[in-house]
């Protein structure tokens, strides 16, 4: 098997391991991630508590494992949202052209011109802080990338004769979009989506860190980083382990996306 396939498979396995850990979290954690023992607060890592305890005495190892659920679920949901929304808008804009294209692309330009984090904070401020609203907020600023990508992919094949042939043979617009445009755009979009999982996870963790995403007592890595900040000097494990978790997971998914691109990109042929 070629080297790039080996890489892809290994990263895929790692990613699946992470997903598995998230799914099976309730069975893997030694303690209830929400069970507090106020008198056991801020204990350093030991045999009983692998990662130590946080300021309310909750086992940090359990919370870090549990945190993968929130982080992964929301990141995947977010990527799925912007993938779907962006593709539909981009394909429509590219295929119909004219004023539809103009309006949709001006809308996309508008969203891009906002600094992402700032708009996300504003939206979270209006809607209220929660994980769901954080996903909505980040989705609002991030869908434009997929729209532009799918639009350009559609424009590439728009002039192709087989599209004219399809229309000539009586294909309806929906049929053309579904059978011709979408399958053409999908591989590139999927690669983009896979690579984006990591950065979307970071955006959501960032929002939670600032207080606009996950709320206490949820076990979410960004929120845990924020809680640990006041204890940076006295109980650094409160920041170190959630930080490491974010780092590892984001790296794995980024590498997965990269290796997927290598596998699917025909120009990489030796």
């Amino acid at each position: 098997m070629k080297k790039k396939h080996v890489l892809f498979v290994s990263f895929l396995c790692l990613a699946l391991l992470i997903v598995l850990a998230a799914v099976l979290a309730p069975y893997l954690v030694p303690y209830d991630p929400f069970a507090a023992s106020l008198t056991d607060a801020l204990k350093p890592p030991s045999a009983e508590h692998l990662f130590g305890t946080d300021k309310l005495g909750r086992d940090l190892f359990s919370r870090v494992i549990y945190g993968s659920r929130a982080s992964l679920a929301s990141a995947l949901a977010l990527v799925a949202c912007i993938f779907a929304l962006g593709s539909v808008v981009g394909i429509a804009a590219g295929y119909f052209g004219g004023w539809i294209d103009a309006v949709l692309m001006r809308l996309a330009d508008m969203m891009i011109s906002f600094p992402g984090m700032v708009l996300a904070i504003a939206v979270a401020g209006i809607l209220g802080a929660s994980m769901t609203n954080a996903v909505i907020a980040v989705a609002l600023v991030s869908w434009t990338k997929y729209a532009r990508l799918s639009r350009s992919l559609v424009l590439k094949i728009k002039g192709c004769e087989y599209l004219a042939a399809a229309r000539l043979t009586g294909s309806r617009t929906g049929h053309i979009m579904w059978r011709y445009l979408f399958p053409n755009a999908v591989p590139t979009l999927v690669i983009t989506a896979a690579t984006d999982i990591g950065s979307m996870m970071l955006e959501l963790a960032g929002l939670s860190f600032l207080g606009f995403g996950a709320q206490a007592p949820m076990a979410e890595w960004g929120l845990m980083l924020s809680e640990g900040r006041s204890y940076m000097q006295k109980a650094p494990w409160m920041m170190v382990f959630p930080g490491l978790a974010i780092f590892c997971v984001v790296v794995v998914f980024n590498l997965l996306g990269d290796s997927l691109r290598d596998v699917l990109d025909p120009r990489e042929e030796e």
Binding site: A35, A36, L38, L56, A129, G211, Q215, A216, P217
Partner: peptide
């Protein structure tokens, strides 16, 4: 807010749910 979070977990122990708005 530290008090609030600690009270949230304390009340959870006796079966009362608390929603914190920070």
């Amino acid at each position: 807010s530290d008090f609030a979070e600690a009270i949230q977990v304390s009340l959870a122990e006796i079966g009362i749910n608390v929603e914190i708005t920070n």
